[in-house]
């Protein structure tokens, strides 16, 4: 399989002298769900946000399908972003817009601002949005306002919005951390199946080790801004977990 995303020697420091990422080297294939695990503050979120440049990288290169995206800006950056879908921990839906409008937001990168102001979306996009509502099981919610939905429903809309972009890569920044265990499993199932159906790689960063083991094809463990484990979930041992999260009392 060919490499879709290649990160080499990536560093990041929000404050000079206090690095959050200390040299990350990771390659991602064109398929499969990768879970990035680690305790809070180890830079997993920063890593995911650097990939679609919501956070600017320090040193290093990030090559996405042959294009180095670590230094692009303006139009080039927008054209990159629309090829990468993103799902957020707190869903980040536009609360006062309807579910349908939130889904169509996923197409804004492809629509001229004038058409966006006039709400003139192509018929094709609207049909795609209805199909996705079917997929996420919210067909009857198209005209409901986003703030009237439950957490799990909102995250489904968040995923559908990202899929509206017809992305070539799907990022999820702690998509289940604000949800109950049952809903978390449903959201992970949705991310996994959509990655497979659309034949795109999915990068999920998360706390929950069991959830990661259950759904991931590959696990990346991070601690202190470095990758300390990278491999199949079945190879992740308690020793690795001690290294990733520190201590061992919590494992009993």
């Amino acid at each position: 399989m060919s490499v879709v995303l290649s990160i080499q020697g990536l560093t990041k420091a929000y404050k000079p002298g206090v690095p959050v990422l200390k040299g990350i080297d990771l390659d991602f294939d064109e398929r499969g769900l990768t879970a990035i695990i680690g305790s809070s503050g180890t830079g997993k979120s920063t890593l995911v946000r650097i990939i679609n440049r919501l956070v600017d990288p320090g040193d290093g290169t990030i090559v996405f399908k042959g294009e180095d995206l670590s230094r692009i800006h303006g139009r080039q950056l927008r054209e990159l972003r629309r090829r990468i879908g993103m799902v957020f921990q707190e869903y980040n839906l536009v609360e006062r817009l309807s579910v349908m409008e939130n889904l169509l937001c996923g197409r804004l990168g492809y629509l001229s601002p004038l058409k966006a102001w006039l709400r003139r979306f192509p018929q094709e996009d609207i049909e795609h949005a209805y199909q996705l509502l079917d997929v996420i099981g919210l067909s009857n919610f198209a005209n409901q306002r986003a703030d009237s939905l439950s957490g799990g429903q909102r995250q489904r809309v968040g995923i559908a919005r990202a899929l509206m972009q017809r992305p070539e890569l799907l990022l999820a920044d702690e998509p289940t951390s604000s949800l109950d265990p049952k809903t978390s499993v449903e959201i992970m199932e949705l991310l996994k199946s959509q990655g497979e159906d659309n034949k795109i790689p999915v990068l999920v960063n998360m706390h929950d080790v069991e959830l990661a083991k259950r759904f991931a094809d590959r696990i990346v463990g991070m601690t202190g801004g470095r990758v300390v484990f990278d491999g199949l979930p079945s190879r992740l041992t308690d020793d690795h977990l001690k290294l990733i999260y520190g201590g061992e009392g919590w494992l009993q």
Binding site: L54, V94, C105, G109, P113
Partner: peptide, 24 residues
């Protein structure tokens, strides 16, 4: 957060205003 999500879709600034700022 809502603005960030719209920006992440690659929307130009004027569209971010229309779909992220004005509704709020």
């Amino acid at each position: 957060k809502q603005i960030e999500a719209i920006r992440a879709t690659g929307a130009p600034f004027a569209s971010v205003v229309a779909f992220g700022v004005l509704p709020q």
